[in-house]
Simulated scan of single mutants.
Amino acid sequence: MEFFYPCKDSTQSSVSFQNSILIWPALTLGNVGQLSIDLILNTFGFKKVGYIHDEDIVPLAGNDTLTPAGKGVLSTAVEVYQFTNRQNTTITIVQQRSPIIAGHINRFAEKLNQWIKQSGFSQLLFLASTNANKRIDTQLFGTQIRYVASDAVGDNQFIVDRIEKQCGVPPMERSVVIDGDLIELSDRLTGLGRRLMTLATQENSKGIAMVAFILFCSEGDNTQDAIVMSNHVVQYTELTTETSNNNNNTIDFKIPSSWSLIKDGPSINQALYF
C-alpha cells in the first residue's frame, strides 16, 4: 500500500528525498509544531510535492491555509513540501493537520519510520511542545526550548555542536537532585514523537537520526511560541534568505492568513443572541 502520493504535476520518480532533512510537527500542547510549519512554509515559499495518505490518519479536507483569502487549493490531512537552501540541501516539511486515530500511534509510527529509511532522509527534525507548568527550577529561566536526540545523532559531534552552539538549544534535563535524592525525569516526548524515538533507540546505529525540539509553553495564543520555534528551525536547517534581519539575527516571517482566525476567530451571527 502506498504511503506517499506525489502531486499531479510531479511523479513518484521526480520527487527525491535522498539526503533530505525531514521536519515533522507534533500534534500536542498549543499546536506549536503545526503553527511553526505553516509559518516556515509561508515565509520561504516551499513547493508542495505531494501528500501522505494512510488509514491511521483521520481524513480531512479544508480551506487553503497559506493563500490569502483562501483562494488556493484545498488543504488535506498530511501534506509534503520541499525547498532547497543556500547550501544546496533539500529540506522536506510535512504538515499534519489531523490526528492519528486513537490506538493507532504505534502502527503509524512504524510505517513512518520505514518510509523515512526507505526514502533516504538524512535525519528527522521533530517539532514538539510540552507543559510549562511542569518545569523544574533550572528550566524557569533562559531559553524555553530543549532538544532530545537519538543515538545516531548523539554520536555525531557536528550535529550536537550545531544544536547547542549554533542554535543555542541545550539538551533536555533528564535528572534533578531534590533533598539529596537523584530523580529521573522524562524526555517530555509524547505520542508519535515518543514512539519514533523509541524505535530509533531500539535500532541503535541502524535507527533514524532524530532530533526533537521541545518548547515549554501553555495553551492559548501560541503564535509567539511558534515564532521562537521557527527561528531555531531556520538556524538549524540554515534556511536563511533575504528575509533575514542582519541586525539581530532574526527572521522577518510572513504571517500565514490562517493565523487571523487564532485571535479573531470566525465571524458569529449576532442574531443568535437576540
Rank of each mutant, 00 (worst) to 15 (best):
Q202R: 14
K254E: 11
M210W: 05
A226P: 10
V211H: 02
T198C: 11
L189T: 05
M197D: 08
W259P: 06
T237D: 02
R195D: 06
P256C: 12
L196W: 01
F213K: 00
Q202D: 14
T240V: 15
L239I: 06
G220S: 06
T250V: 01
K206G: 13
G193S: 11
G193R: 03
G193H: 04
N249P: 08
I262F: 08
S260I: 12
E203H: 03
A209C: 09
E242L: 14
D225F: 02
I262Q: 06
S257W: 14
T198A: 14
M197I: 10
N246Q: 13
I214V: 15
S205E: 11
N249I: 06
P256L: 10
T223K: 12
F213H: 00
G191N: 07
K206W: 05
E219T: 11
V228G: 06
T198Q: 13
T223G: 05
G207H: 01
G191T: 08
L196D: 04
S244V: 15
P256R: 10
K206E: 05
T243P: 03
T198E: 15
P256K: 07
I251V: 15
D221S: 10
H232M: 02
I262E: 05
V233R: 00
V211C: 02
N222R: 04
N204Y: 04
N246I: 14
